[in-house]
């Protein structure tokens, strides 16, 4: 058993955990902001795909990496705007709107990818982000290499947790976002424009999701594949419930989740023959369902989640 837990002392394990957690941190925070304002954003899976395609394509066309991240955020924001036109301004079913956005964003990404690169068989590559190391700290043996030599996007993800956490709970804007998600009528009575706050939250959240997607093609890998999001968006939705709509807990959840994923990959390498690899690949999805089951009983959903707001209607 002692040998079994040796991986905890390998720098690679912790580095892998932070790497795998990064898109989940972005996606979970993005979804969290949307849901806090009362809008379930099922577009997340497609928006992440769009972000990974848009960011990659920007760099492939000669743009720089940060430009790619910004472009991904812009594309994500545009899908967020479309989502909010439907779900917020027209008050249409958030479920169907979100699924429609996912279908549209992913099929459009694949379409654009195929149209711009019609004759490629192997996906072309770009030069992805290089890790940034924190001076001094990164020289600590084992730990330094794992925790302080990270992709710039991972640093950004950690920063965004603080920004969203502070923004949601310590600023008037954050209060407005939480208010329209809990009691839109009261918010309106305070002179808050419910539609505007909600659509702002959805646009911002969608941009975050797309940045999470762009991490996949600009940092974790160097190419875009069809189907590369692979359910990460849906896992983020489960993580939001798991985190009870709190940014700090969302970070913990994403890290815990990624650590488990990194661990199962190590176990898979060590004891591969005993259990077929497909069952290891099922682990993240099974774990998301288990997390939902554990947390759902005392889940405190934002009160106005899924409820469209129409002025003057009760």
């Amino acid at each position: 058993m002692g040998d079994f837990f040796d991986f905890l002392f390998v720098a690679g394990f912790w580095a892998a955990t932070l790497r795998m957690a990064t898109p989940l941190i972005f996606g979970t925070l993005g979804e969290l902001v949307c849901e806090r304002s009362g809008v379930l954003n099922l577009g997340i899976e497609g928006i992440m795909t769009a972000g990974s395609m848009a960011g990659w394509m920007w760099v492939y066309q000669g743009g720089d990496l940060w430009g790619g991240v910004l472009f991904a955020a812009f594309v994500g924001g545009m899908f967020g705007l479309l989502h909010s036109l439907f779900s917020v301004y027209l008050g249409l079913s958030q479920h169907v709107t979100g699924l429609g956005i996912t279908m549209l964003a992913s099929s459009l990404s694949y379409f654009v990818f195929r149209m711009m690169l019609p004759n490629v068989t192997t996906p072309p590559k770009i030069v992805p982000f290089e890790s940034w190391s924190l001076p001094f700290f990164s020289e600590i043996p084992v730990l330094g290499e794992a925790l302080f030599v990270l992709s710039p996007l991972t640093w950004l993800a950690l920063l965004i947790v603080v920004v969203v956490g502070y923004g949601l709970f310590y600023t008037p804007l954050g209060l407005a976002v939480r208010m329209v998600g809990e009691n839109p009528m009261a918010a309106e009575a305070q002179g808050i424009n419910v539609h505007r706050v909600r659509s702002g939250a959805v646009i911002f959240g969608s941009a975050l999701m797309a940045v999470g997607g762009s991490f996949l093609t600009l940092s974790a890998f160097d190419a875009f594949y069809i189907g590369m999001t692979n359910g990460r968006g849906w896992i983020c939705i489960a993580l939001v419930v798991f985190a009870s709509w709190k940014p700090g807990k969302a970070l913990l959840g994403a890290l815990f989740f990624a650590a488990f994923d990194a661990m199962q990959m190590r176990v898979q390498q060590q004891a591969s023959a005993a259990i077929p690899y497909q069952f290891y690949l099922m682990a993240p999805y099974v774990m998301s369902i288990v997390a939902l089951i554990i947390m759902s009983r005392r889940a405190a959903y934002p009160k106005a989640l899924l409820v469209p707001f129409r002025r003057g209607e009760r």
Binding site: F86, L92, V96, T97
Partner: peptide, 13 residues
């Protein structure tokens, strides 16, 4: 797939 996805959204409207 794009046409069907857009149809889903336009039908909602």
């Amino acid at each position: 797939e794009v046409i069907t996805a857009v149809s889903l959204l336009t039908v909602l409207v």
